[in-house]
């Protein structure tokens, strides 16, 4: 299953890639693949913006606006005028997004 097309904030700069393969290893959506000792993006629309690749890229080749894709969090963020924050575990018990 894939979600909406052409919305991901994933950005990849192949020139900075050293071919370590970390991004391939950490991506849970198989967005990256190694070709000729460099990472390439296979299908950008599969990205769920979790941020694992960007965090673990030691060469700043990847950037993504990472956050949990949770409607309850986004709506709450809109209502309170803050950034969307996943509500699970805040002991409120009101939002159960995981």
């Amino acid at each position: 299953m894939t979600y909406l097309r052409k919305v991901t904030t994933l950005n990849y700069n192949p020139q900075r890639c050293t071919g370590c393969g970390r991004c391939v290893e950490v991506c849970p959506r198989n967005v990256f693949e190694m070709r000729d000792k460099k990472a390439v993006i296979t299908d950008k629309d599969r990205c769920l913006e979790c941020g694992a690749c960007a965090l673990n890229c030691d060469f700043s080749a990847i950037s993504v606006n990472a956050s949990a894709g949770c409607a309850a969090a986004v709506i709450r963020g809109m209502l309170t005028g803050t950034e969307p924050v996943c509500g699970c575990g805040d002991n409120s018990g009101k939002v159960a997004c995981c």
Binding site: M1, T2, Y3, L4, V7, T8, T9, P28, R29, R46, C47, L48, E49, C50, N65, A66, S67, A68, G69, C70, A71, A72, A73, V74, I75, M78, P84, C86, V95, C97, C98
Partner: peptide, 24 residues
């Protein structure tokens, strides 16, 4: 149904925001 995006493993924040902008 839109709320279920919080439980999935494939819905990113940009998509959810886009949906909400239209849907809300």
């Amino acid at each position: 149904a839109l709320q279920f995006t919080g439980a999935t493993t494939f819905t990113g924040i940009s998509g959810v925001k886009k949906e909400i902008k239209f849907a809300l």
